[in-house]
Design a protein around this nucleic acid. Sequence first.
DNA 1: GGAATATTTGCAAACTTGCGCAAGTTTGCT
DNA 2: AGCAAACTTGCGCAAGTTTGCAAATATTCC
Lengths: 125, 125
Amino acid sequence: MNDAKTVLPDACTDALTPFLRPELFRALGDPSRLALLARLAATPGAQSVTELSSCCGVHFSGVSRHLKILHDAGLIDVERQGREALYRLDCGALALALRGMADALEACQASCCGPRGAEGDCRRA
Amino acid sequence: MNDAKTVLPDACTDALTPFLRPELFRALGDPSRLALLARLAATPGAQSVTELSSCCGVHFSGVSRHLKILHDAGLIDVERQGREALYRLDCGALALALRGMADALEACQASCCGPRGAEGDCRRA
DNA sequence: GGAATATTTGCAAACTTGCGCAAGTTTGCT
DNA sequence: AGCAAACTTGCGCAAGTTTGCAAATATTCC
């Protein structure tokens, strides 16, 4: 085994790093929050906390907290209207985060393995 | 306020659901595990637990556990070789999961908002 | 002002997670 | 067989999460 593996310090890692956001994935890592996102995605227009409470079997106070977490992660927008808080999915932000990471990863693989899949090819053993 | 919001039961949700995997995002929701993934992505070839231990300041027993979590989520492959366990990123699986969710989300938005951005348009308030 | 509605927040209970250490397992080497 | 190397797993601890209930905080409507 090579005693000094070549860890590329270059473009590869630099491009990937900004997409490695634990809080974002943590926000996505809970069933109730995923249900909320699905509901937000599947319903036209913005929805209130009480409306959203019906989608996962969680008390509305819990839903309020979940929505805050999603909002803090930049995944949903709030608009206060009277005594309601209307939430809507920021589809673009989420899609960008996910695709950005996918793209960066693949670029990384491509760059570290070399174009001809030589020597230490990472792709499909 | 409409008392009965139209929650689309159709293609939209059905296409999104398979990508809503909490364990997957949970696996991605930890800094040490993200560091491991970055390392795996930036280094050609497979790497052993001990090698990987140097990338996040975590005891190798912890790294072993992290790798198991990533593996269970389908993000990395293991190959046992003698007394070593060689891990490599399953870049395709990860990229597919991320892009799949991004695509499904956007399809969802497009379908639930109608093509002309009528009435309850979800896109950019 | 007072009642009703909508949401947030404090609190406590149950549970999960991340961590290091030590012990166990498997494999290779002499 | 004996020993070392590489990894996994059980244990305990500290810290963090999720959840419901109840109280606090707006906001609207008489």
